[in-house]
């Protein structure tokens, strides 16, 4: 096994290997994963209230049971081409704990895919250059022969302009 290791889905895990679960979603034909413990809920896309003078990838804020939650378009955050929102478009609401406290934010993705177990420390971050998006990526793993990009949420959800 080389830089990227093979992971089997759910079963066949060695008992003594600690794993983390990742929720994955599809965006521009690539599969991305986020730590499942950070996922608050998954909801359909509904229009958000735009916030003045915010970055283009912030689509606005929504009312999530009384809390004001910003919504980020992940395609635009990564500089991918813009896609019209449709039936399958979902918002993954994530909650992360940073030094300044908890922060809740929604990300718009094309479609939800699956949940995988990934052994801790298995994600490899080799060969990724220092481009504008490498900050957002925790590492790559291979699941069922294809690549999953694990996201570094704290960097992803920190907005500074």
């Amino acid at each position: 096994m080389s830089a990227v290791s093979e992971i089997n889905e759910h079963s066949n895990m060695e008992d003594d290997v600690l794993t983390e679960q990742y929720l994955t979603f599809i965006m521009a034909d690539e599969e991305y994963g986020v730590d499942i413990l950070a996922v608050q809920e998954i909801r359909g896309w509904e229009s958000a209230t735009p916030v003045p003078n915010s970055p283009r990838y912030i689509k606005g804020v929504i009312n999530l049971r009384g809390t004001i939650v910003p919504i980020m378009d992940l395609r635009q955050r990564f500089g991918l081409e813009i896609k019209e929102y449709g039936e399958e478009t979902v918002v993954v609401v994530l909650k992360i704990f940073t030094s300044t406290g908890a922060r809740t934010m929604g990300i718009i993705v094309d479609a939800i895919s699956d949940v995988y177990d990934v052994p801790i420390g298995d994600a490899k971050n080799r060969g990724l250059g220092d481009n504008q998006n490498s900050n957002f990526i925790k590492g790559l793993v291979t699941v069922k022969k294809h690549m999953v990009i694990l996201l570094e949420l704290e960097n992803l959800l920190t907005i500074d302009d």
Binding site: V51, P52, N53, S54, I58, V61, T67, I68, V69, P70, G101, R103, T104, M105, I159, D160
Partner: peptide, 9 residues
């Protein structure tokens, strides 16, 4: 709380 300070808001 979840976003950041916005000028004018």
């Amino acid at each position: 709380e979840n976003y950041k300070r916005v000028d004018g808001i």
